[in-house]
Amino acid sequence: MILMRLFAIAVLSVGVVACGQVGPPRPDNMPPADNTPPPADDDTPPADDEPDPMPPVDEDPEPPAPGFELPGGWQGAPGALLPGSSTVKGSTGVTDPSVIAPEMIFPLAEGPAFANSQIFGQGGGGYASGEWPGPGGSENDPRNFDYPWADNFCEVRLDAKHATDLCPGGKAHKGQDLRPKTCENAVHWLVAPETGWISHVGSISVNIMGAESGLKYKFLHVQMPVPDWVKTGAPVTQGQPFAQVSDLLSASSRATTVHTHFEIHGAADVDGALHNGALPPYTSLVESYLDLVDANPDMAEPVAQPSQDKCLTPQ
């Protein structure tokens, strides 16, 4: 497991060295969708006892240069939704700090990334025609691409398809919204949180089942088409890029912001009752993000947003 994580980091580092850059690989260096190499023919994920493909470790590495450090309070507490954003106003989200998926790596290829609300963040219109008002403004506001993170599992949703047992009101947002480094559409790569299988490819979604944890990871609003090899049942390796972040709300509508809606699914003992569905992913994202930025300190620092024309939805 640890070797796999190190391998993923090593892959990213190799990419940096190859490009003569300091820091993470630039978006342009990520494999284009059409050219992403397919996984090995073997249908099974690499076994733990297979040779470690990581390059030899430098016995006397140079001390890392001091990089950006996450600010104090960079991440809000689990369950601490933005004020006025919960289905039952005044209630919290899931405050249980347990990390559901300690096996996973951060699902974006590079940082920084920002866990926050789309409809209650800058540019958000809120919910239910103002009954849950949003701040308005521009979705590309730099404040959306900065800290602090905020949990939005249990954020208000009222339609039946958002039914969940874990949140007050019984209907809620069942994942965590993640904004990538910039507001650019179809640029930022998503990577497999675990070695496993592509468990479903939808019209705007990709699901991955982890071979180690058995958990399922769901990504919504992915850019379509995904690379050819991304098909249901295809094996995938932890850290392998498989799709890009987009603003697709449906196959024909780019009506949401550039972000990933990330879910973790599995079975749970919820106060003695058996639950099988979306579980709170926030703390798993926090921990995996720490791993990412610890290994790549420059990936933690927010960047200036590109000009607005670069963030326009492609026609």
Partner: peptide, 17 residues
């Protein structure tokens, strides 16, 4: 799944019903 994760639900959540 026969593997379950133990979670405390949000305060005020109705739970599995």
């Amino acid at each position: 799944s026969r593997l379950v994760t133990v979670i405390e639900k949000a305060q005020g959540a109705s739970g599995v019903g």
